[in-house]
């Protein structure tokens, strides 16, 4: 983010035209920011309001509950989130998604750190050829169906490994790590080598600790990508609904015309009647959406500088 001050400009008097212009752009940005944020807020208040009011379209700007007379008053409830435990198939998809986010991201980061370090080694046999071999895959792919047939041939359909193995080699992240490592003074590495450290030791003890900023950046990108993954689940897991990712599950919920209330497993902590009135399809859709947005919103403020750093490194590379 730009921290530059406009000191030299300060002594120049702002004309009326400047004032109008400044106000106009501030209003413009406030409006656009509201457009970006309000949908999330609206989704949230829909999940914490009275469900009848939600489905009858009474919620506008604040969460509302019904009073004794059945009118909407300001209020909040979290029953929908509690009731989610009874929604069929949701639990498995959350577990699968968390597992692939953790495992997939870890494998990707380790591979990128390793490959990114090795491709900086001028001594490697045919180094530039292998580097290009990895990087060119960013710009070229065989197409959806050949890719699918390949995964089928490798036995990676209906298989959890399909979520974590193919994503291990991420060329763009390898480039980012390589660029970063090249900025680390070579002398650090050389002195360790003189002391007899092997390549693995140098990588583990020197390169990885010094590359933590870039590794954090790519792990955030990787984690968000894994959390948002939808296409591989849609294409590869046809016979294993228990391996659907959260986004795929949500996609099914969003498209199901039948009442999701009927998909609730029997029993649970709430009476059936209460379940029927509380858990209509729309509210389940909203609540599941909210659940899958919340982790991103929670990590987002802490990670934003890493995001920005990541895209900047990419831009430097061009």
């Amino acid at each position: 983010m730009s921290k530059k001050t406009k000191e030299p400009a300060m002594h120049i008097k702002r004309t009326a035209g400047d004032w109008v212009f400044d106000t106009a752009i501030v209003i413009l940005f406030v409006l656009f920011t509201i457009i970006c944020v309000f949908p999330f807020y609206y989704l949230l208040i829909n999940t914490i309001s009275d469900n009848d009011l939600v489905t009858s379209g009474k919620i506008n700007f604040f969460p509302m509950l019904k009073d004794a007379a059945g009118n909407g008053v300001f209020g909040v409830q979290i029953n929908n989130y509690i009731a989610l435990q009874n929604v069929q198939d949701l639990g498995s998809s959350v577990i699968v998604t968390v597992a692939r986010t953790v495992i997939g991201t870890a494998l990707m980061v380790i591979t990128s750190a390793w490959a990114g370090y090795l491709v900086t080694k001028q001594k490697m046999w045919k180094r530039s050829f292998w580097y290009r071999f990895l990087v060119i895959t960013m710009y070229f792919n065989a197409g959806l169906v050949p890719w699918y047939m390949n995964m089928l041939m490798m036995g990676l359909t209906d298989n959890f490994l399909a979520y974590v193995i193919p994503g291990m080699v991420a060329p763009y992240n390898i480039i980012l790590v390589k660029t970063y490592i090249e900025s680390i003074p070579v002398s650090l590495e050389e002195s360790a080598v003189i002391d007899g450290a092997s390549t693995l030791t140098v990588w583990r003890k020197i390169i990885v600790p010094l590359s933590i900023p870039i590794l954090a950046t790519i792990s955030i990108f990787g984690a968000v990508g894994n959390w948002n993954s939808f296409q591989d689940s849609l294409l590869l897991m046809n016979n294993r609904p228990d391996l659907y990712t959260l986004q795929h599950r949500l996609y099914i919920y969003l498209n199901s015309s039948s009442n999701l209330g009927a998909m609730m497993s029997q029993g649970g902590t709430i009476s059936e009647q209460a379940a029927a009135s509380m858990l209509n399809q729309r509210v389940i859709q909203y609540t599941v959406s909210m659940v899958s947005i919340i982790p991103i919103l929670l990590v987002y403020p802490f990670m934003q500088r890493y995001f920005v750093k990541g895209i900047m490194l990419g831009a430097v590379k061009g």
Partner: peptide, 22 residues
């Protein structure tokens, strides 16, 4: 402004559709 306007980039298209429904 920069922080808040980048949020939508990090949610999946499925979630965008959920928001569209909403």
């Amino acid at each position: 402004v920069q922080t808040l306007t980048t949020i939508p980039n990090f949610i999946s298209w499925v979630l965008v559709y959920a928001i569209a429904i909403c």
